[in-house]
């Protein structure tokens, strides 16, 4: 089958372009990762904050096209959010991307990695 037929235009575009994908390091940056072994999905967030606000978000991802697209949307949504209120509505993202029900579990990997990264802002080393 042609894999492309299973995805919306937006998923295909975000998967192809993967905006804000990549790693980052340096002052103000934290990074954390989550994994789901059954599908091998891995997500690593790189977040930077200034004055308690997220100013930049990058991600690295080994996952299906829906996961890549969801991470891209989450990265865009994170910028400008206060660290303490950096909640992403992954249910809305799933709906927007028309992700099948079986795929939505993979979005928890994005969420888990994000939570782990946000916690690092509170850690003394951050």
């Amino acid at each position: 089958m042609s894999a492309g037929e299973a995805y919306s235009e937006e998923v295909r575009r975000l998967f192809r372009e993967a905006p804000a994908a990549g790693r980052a390091a340096g002052a103000g940056w934290v990074a954390a990762e989550a994994t789901e072994p059954l599908t091998g999905t891995r997500v690593r967030w790189h977040l930077r904050s200034e004055g308690g606000v997220i100013t930049d978000a990058r991600y690295q991802v080994r996952g299906c096209p829906h996961t890549v697209a969801a991470a891209a949307l989450a990265a865009a949504a994170l910028k400008g959010l206060p660290i303490g209120a950096a909640a992403i509505d992954f249910a809305a993202i799933a709906q927007r991307l028309r992700a099948p029900a079986a795929k939505r579990g993979r979005f928890f990997v994005i969420q888990d990695a994000l939570h782990a990264a946000l916690l690092l802002f509170d850690a003394p080393s951050a």
Binding site: A3, G4, Y7, R12, F15, T39, G40, T41, R62, G63, C64, P65, T67, V68
Partner: peptide
Amino acid sequence: VDGEALLL
């Protein structure tokens, strides 16, 4: 890599 991503 993810197999489905590779397929797309």
